[in-house]
Write a protein that binds this DNA or RNA. Structure first.
Length: 417
RNA sequence: GCGGGUGUAGCUCAGUUGGUUAGAGCGCGGGUUUGUGGUACCUGAGGUCGCCGGUUCGAAGCCGGUCACUCGCCCCA
C-alpha cells in the first residue's frame, strides 16, 4: 500500500459531517417514535438469499452492485444493499406474524458497488421505516405522512416534491405489462439499447428512462392507471383522498416505477433537484409479496427508506461545538487541583475542558478558539482566599466566587445560549 | 459498467508560450503581552504539484497509464 486511504466510494465522517447525519437520524427516530414506530437493528450482512430472492434477478442491486463473499465456512453472505428484506426476515424469525401490526424504524449503513458520485457512495446510510401486517390503504397514507413530517422537520419541504403512482395488484400489473410490451414492440428500432434490454427483462422500467427518444415514445404509451382493476383503482383513489385530507402536496406520475421486484400498489418518491441526478431522497411503496418470497406466510407491508447522506447534503448546517467552561490554572503545578473541579462540573452536566498547556495568554487563546462561554481561573490568590475566579468570556467581566455559586451562574446562562 | 471534467500547503485557489529557490488568502505555531482571549502588527512552520512512466538540456504545465473526486448515463436512497 503506497498511501493510506479509504476504499473508493467509502468515506470518513468527520465531526462536522457526522453532526449533519445525526441531525437527520435523530429527526427520523423522533418523528417515527411519535407515530409509534419502534427502532430495531438488524445485521449488516446476511445470507445472500435474503436479498437475492426478494430483490429479483433483474435488479442491478443483485446482479452487479452487490458485495457478496464466502466466509470461512463457505456460507454465501452479502453486505446488505437495503434494509427492507432484512427487517422482514427479522420479523418472520421472531414469530411476530402472530402479533401484527408491527411498526419498525431503523438506520445504518448499506453497501452497493456503484460508480460513486455526490450523494451516491458505496457505503452509505439509510433511515427507513416499515409497517407490517396491514393491507389497508390507511397504512400507505400513514407511511407517506410520516415521511412527509420527517422531511418537514428537517426544513426541506420547500425543496422537495412528492410523486406517487400505483402499480396495482398482480393482475393489473400483468395486464399492463402485456399492453406496454405490445405498444413498445412497434418502436424497437427507435428505443435506446438500455431500454431494448429492459423490454425483455423489466419493461416497466422503460417508463422512467431519461433518454429523450425513449421519453417521446413513452409519452404516448398506455397509462398504467387505466389498467388498474376495480379494487386497485379504488385503493389508489383512497390514498389520494387521504393525502388531500392531510394537505400533503403530491403529483401523480404514471411513469413512476420501482426498481425492485417486491413492490406492488403504491409507489412514491420524494425528490429534490438540488442533487443533480441523485434527486431521490426518500422513496418506498407497498410490498405485499415480499414475505412470501422469503419463505414466510403472506404478510402485507409498506414502508420507505431515505438516503441520510443525501438529506444531510441539502439540510446542511454548520456544526459549532461550544464549550461551557474552560479551567485555567495559573501554573502547571496547579493543574491537578482543576481535576476535582472538572469532575464536579461534569456531574452537573456542564461541558468542560481543562487547558493544560502554555502561559495564561495562550490558554485564553485556546479558550477563545473552542468558543468557551466561561473560564474558571485558579491561582495563588484564589487558593489562599478559597475561591475561584469566574470570567465571562463574552463580556470579559471577572469576579471571585465560591465554586458552587459559579456553577449556578454557569448552569443558568449556558442554557440561554 | 459507459462517456466528459478535475487533481498544486490543513482549506479555498493563483502559477503566463515548458526555464533558477512553486505563490497568495484563510487556518496553524511563536512573539509584541511573566495573572488574561477576541482586534492589530511582527514572525515561523507546512509541498514527492495525486501516483507511475515517457518526451525534453530542463516538466506543476506536454504525452501515456493509473488512482481518487466530480458531472451525465446506467441504477437507486
Amino acid at each position: 500500500m503506497e498511501k493510506l486511504r479509504t476504499v473508493r466510494g467509502v468515506h470518513d465522517l468527520l465531526p462536522n459531517d457526522l453532526h449533519n447525519h445525526n441531525k437527520v437520524i435523530n429527526a427520523g427516530l423522533d418523528i417515527s417514535d411519535k407515530y409509534n414506530y419502534c427502532q430495531i437493528e438488524i445485521p449488516i450482512f446476511e445470507f445472500a438469499e435474503v436479498f437475492t430472492k426478494p430483490l429479483g434477478t433483474s435488479s442491478d442491486i443483485v446482479t452487479k452492485e452487490n458485495y457478496i463473499f464466502k466466509d470461512r465456512s463457505e456460507d454465501e453472505l452479502m453486505l446488505r444493499p437495503e434494509g427492507t428484506s432484512g427487517v422482514v426476515r427479522a420479523f418472520l424469525n421472531a414469530g411476530l406474524v402472530q402479533d401484527v401490526p408491527q411498526r419498525f424504524s431503523y438506520y445504518g449503513p448499506m453497501f452497493r458497488y456503484e460508480r460513486p458520485q455526490k450523494g451516491r457512495l458505496r457505503q452509505f446510510k439509510q433511515f427507513g421505516i416499515e409497517c407490517l401486517g396491514l393491507s389497508s390503504s390507511m397504512a400507505d397514507i400513514e407511511v407517506i405522512s410520516l415521511g412527509n413530517d420527517f422531511l418537514c422537520r428537517l426544513g426541506l419541504l420547500n425543496k422537495i416534491n412528492l410523486k406517487i403512482n400505483s402499480l396495482g395488484d398482480f393482475e393489473s400489473r400483468n395486464n399492463y405489462r402485456e399492453a406496454l410490451v405490445n405498444y413498445l414492440n412497434d418502436y424497437q428500432s427507435n428505443l435506446s439499447t438500455d431500454s431494448l434490454n429492459r423490454l425483455a427483462i423489466n419493461p416497466l422500467r422503460i417508463l422512467d428512462s431519461k433518454n429523450e427518444v425513449d421519453q417521446k415514445i413513452v409519452k404516448n404509451a398506455p397509462n398504467i392507471l387505466d389498467y388498474l382493476n376495480y379494487k386497485s383503482k379504488a385503493r389508489f383513489d383512497d390514498i389520494c383522498k387521504g393525502l388531500d385530507h392531510l394537505n400533503i402536496n403530491y403529483t401523480i406520475d404514471k411513469n413512476l416505477v420501482r426498481g425492485l421486484d417486491y413492490y406492488c400498489h403504491t409507489a412514491f418518491e420524494f425528490t429534490t433537484n438540488e442533487l443533480g441526478s441523485q434527486g431521490t431522497v426518500l422513496a418506498g411503496g407497498r410490498y405485499d409479496g415480499l414475505s412470501k418470497m422469503l419463505g414466510g406466510p403472506d404478510v402485507p407491508g409498506v414502508g420507505w427508506a431515505a438516503g441520510i447522506e443525501r438529506l444531510a447534503l441539502i439540510a446542511q448546517s454548520k456544526f459549532v461545538n461550544k464549550t461551557d467552561v474552560v479551567l485555567i490554572g495559573q501554573s502547571e503545578n496547579i493543574n491537578y487541583l482543576l481535576l476535582p473541579i472538572m469532575k464536579k462540573l461534569v456531574q452537573k452536566g456542564i461541558k468542560t475542558e481543562i487547558i493544560y498547556n502554555g502561559n495564561l495568554s495562550k490558554k485564553f487563546k485556546r479558550a477563545n478558539k473552542i468558543k468557551a462561554l466561561y473560564a474558571i481561573i485558579l491561582g495563588e490568590e484564589e487558593i489562599s482566599k478559597k475561591v475561584i475566579k469566574l470570567k465571562d468570556l463574552k463580556i470579559g467581566s471577572e469576579e471571585f466566587l465560591d465554586l458552587n455559586h459559579a456553577i449556578e451562574i454557569i448552569k443558568i446562562n449556558k442554557d440561554l445560549e
